[in-house]
Nucleic acid binder design. Structure first.
Lengths: 340, 340
DNA sequence: TTGTACGCGTTATCAG
DNA sequence: CTGATAACGCGTACAA
């Protein structure tokens, strides 16, 4: 591949002159600049970022690790991160951990090996802690997105999970629901814990009875979810009149489970969940959801990260941003306040 | 950051020995290996891939460039690519060009600069040709996904767009539709052209009249789409009884447009499109679609790419894989064969 | 305004 | 089995 030496030879200058032209450092006559640039064009020269990074000790590369690339919440978040990165002159690369600690670890090696300048990290769960510690030890700045990890002080940007759960329960309670089940993600995920808390608190506020059987903990994205849900729902007696699913995928699984039993949503069971479905909601405005500001979480997180990178070894305190959520009411909830 | 020299010093060996332990090259006594490994653990050592890549001239990094990260078609494709890459010991990074040649060009620089071993490329359109030529000139192997680019001979993996369009038109024709509009993507995108062809051919086969006014060409993902569609639909007289949208996003916009006029889908206008909605289809099994084998396109494309990479300067012919599509019939099509 | 020497962290080559 | 040396492509510091 072409190097600055190839360019230098053809342009009859030294390699250093080429380097200076590329980086606009030092002072080079317009004439030489033009000449060098012409040769670079001809040879389709692209600076080797590895060599460059090796000497400058920075890559201007940001890395975004998300846990589910098929979830509109994360892809919208990615868009926000991308826009912010672009604005500040950084490049952004994505990785998808698929909720797996193992895959996460693989991406960590990629990140560490590539010496990314910073990382936007949506951790698979609390057990991601060692991964974060690794990052910290190598002094690579990172910002947690969507999920916190106990034991790690750092910048975080979150949606207001607890408040979201409360809004959802209130919404259901207002419509006469008193038996509301919760299909939660793993309790090793901070947002799932917060949502469970909101669920519980809202129950007290609305004077609803809490029933442990009504709470199901699942892995996100598990292929077993459907089977587990089905058995769980069968065992529930009396049947809940509503289900709060902790993300859109769980909601889709819940709906499939319900329908497989010949029941209808919302006639027999209402379903609400966290995270909107992007433009898919336009096609069938069905699910009542808590919409998080996904784009903003990505955008603000990236800004925070870049500030950290640029204010090297500055000792200002960690920031924790909690963005408000919004309830979008559609048609997956039945009003049963007239009955019973 | 820790280097092999730090390790070497602490382990009382030379840097070379450390390198050999890392790469399992040469022969090192088990004892030294163990010692070196212990020190690496302690210091959380991660090899610098930049330095490594500089000397080995390979990165074992693959790059996947997609045009819309929020579209389930591409994210499913990404999953397939990821799995294949992992299987063969490569790392996969994503970029999102957002249908923009400019952003695509930015990612191209990243890819070229990072000296990726290979690229999975879903081009923004025909005008991506110079980008591909750049890649070719630098001898970086690539495989085109989902879209071809005229003038560029290379490996390609596609869904069968023409056949898909035909299936959709046949499906509509069988249900009595004779005025079917087409909302297409830019004619600078190969898949859009093929879909238009399939649309036209199926019209002839079904003895339907072709009406140019019934064909709308849009940018994918344009914010203007909604306004344009609205005006276009108003001008159509008589109104089409069905619309074929060339991807799921266009379909969502079409549906929104239709509903904004107080019309119903499918009662007043039926809507079908390309690409399924992933798990979202479970929530509301509404849209009748042509499902492409997104996962397989990603997986096979990656396999093809890796073969190319490993069989360096082999002169075997380019492969063009066209994967079959499947029509999934749901409820966005009305049967009007009984009426007039 | 331009060029030389050196080092970034690693591996290939070859010598011990 | 282990180590010294050069080289990968580039930028910094300094010299010319």
């Amino acid at each position: 591949m072409t190097t600055i030496y190839d360019i230098a030879k053809l342009a009859n200058v030294s390699a250093m002159t080429v380097s200076k032209v590329i980086n606009n450092t030092g002072s080079i006559s317009e004439k030489t600049k033009a000449k060098v640039r012409r040769v670079m064009e001809e040879l389709n020269y692209v600076p080797n970022q590895m060599a460059r990074g090796l000497v400058t000790q920075q890559t201007r590369l940001l890395f975004l690790l998300i846990t589910d690339i098929t979830n509109p919440f994360y892809t919208t978040l990615a868009r926000g991160a991308e826009d912010a990165a672009r604005k500040y002159g950084y490049r952004l690369l994505f990785g998808n951990s698929d909720e797996s600690l193992e895959k996460e670890s693989g991406y960590l090696d990629t990140i560490l090996g590539a010496r990314a300048d910073g990382v936007l990290f949506s951790p698979a769960g609390d057990r991601s802690l060692p991964h974060l510690q690794k990052l910290r030890k190598q002094k690579i700045p990172f910002v947690l997105l969507d999920r916190e990890v106990p034991g790690m002080d750092c910048d975080v940007v979150l949606g207001d999970s607890k408040e979201g759960a409360k809004l959802l329960i209130n919404h259901l309670a207002e419509r006469g629901h008193r038996r509301i089940a919760l299909i939660n993600g793993s309790s090793e995920i901070s947002s799932a814990r917060l949502r469970a808390q909101g669920y519980a608190e809202a129950h007290k506020l609305n004077d609803l009875e809490l029933n442990e059987d009504y709470v199901l903990e699942t892995d996100y994205t598990s292929h077993q979810d459907l089977r587990v849900m089905s058995g769980w729902l069968d065992r529930l007696s009396p049947r809940p009149t509503a289900i709060l699913a902790c993300n859109n995928i769980l909601a889709s699984e819940a709906i499939e489970t319900i329908r497989a039993k010949g029941l209808k949503v919302p006639d027999d069971i209402s379903v609400v969940c966290f995270d909107d479905l992007g433009y898919m909601s336009r096609i069938s405005p069905f699910l009542t959801v808590i919409a998080q500001q996904a784009y903003e979480i990505g955008y603000l997180g990236t800004q925070l990260l870049i500030e950290r990178i640029q204010d090297k070894d500055g000792q200002r305190p960690w920031k924790k941003l909690i963005l408000p959520v919004e309830l979008i009411s559609r048609s997956s909830v039945a009003d049963i306040s007239g009955q019973g």
